[in-house]
């Protein structure tokens, strides 16, 4: 079975083909929810935002320009939604430092089959520190790191998503990764042991 490209699928969606929309939904549901989970750190909100992205893709199908890569377009929509959600939440939601309330389901799902209680706690603590370190980055650096590291989007494409130059994206990544290295140094030293 030959996988159809995003472009082919999207052009068919533009013609009103529901099956092609389903294929795009199946292909990008996990990456988008993961992206939003890391951006907004709330599973329910992440799913709502991912749903909104698919809805906007559907609503904008007739305006889709095949010149741009589908994922560029997709992540541009997603990034805008995520940043707006973060800005909106700043006024209404106040996460306490070290709040680990959203780690449960994630750990339950991805933990090793039979981890000990101690292992689970250590892993939860490390993950919390990583989340906090990434979450403390400035918005653009955070988006750049999440797209680059977790969504595997190359910096050329990130530049298009963020509408900045490639050198600006590299600069964002350099600063972000260096900040993370300094902030997570204790964990990095632990890993050496």
């Amino acid at each position: 079975m030959v996988l159809e490209s995003d472009l082919e699928l999207m052009l068919r969606v533009r013609e009103g083909d529901a099956a092609s929309f389903e294929a795009l939904l199946h292909r990008y549901r996990v990456p988008l929810v993961s992206f939003f989970c890391r951006m907004v750190r709330d599973q329910g909100l992440a799913e709502d935002l991912a749903q909104e992205v698919f809805l906007r893709v559907y609503k904008s199908r007739e305006r889709y320009q095949p010149e741009a890569r589908f994922t560029t377009w997709l992540y541009r929509i997603a990034t805008n939604l995520a940043l707006n959600a973060i800005r909106d939440r700043k006024e209404t939601v106040c996460d306490a430092p070290g709040d680990d309330s959203d780690s449960g389901p994630i750990l339950d799902r991805f933990a090793d089959p039979q981890p000990t209680v101690e292992q689970r706690l250590m892993r939860a603590d490390r993950e919390r520190l990583i989340r906090q370190a990434v979450g403390a980055l400035p918005e653009n650096q955070r988006v750049a790191v999440i797209l680059h590291k977790y969504q595997e989007v190359d910096y050329h494409q990130i530049a298009k998503v963020l509408s900045v130059s490639e050198s600006a994206v590299k600069s964002l990544l350099f600063r972000a990764y260096e900040t993370l290295r300094v902030r997570l140094e204790p964990l990095l030293r632990e890993g050496q042991i």
């Binding site: 929810v33 993961s34 977790y150």
Partner: peptide, 9 residues
């Protein structure tokens, strides 16, 4: 280390 940050499906 960053790979340890998993997210739910």
């Amino acid at each position: 280390l960053l790979d340890e940050w998993k997210t739910a499906s």
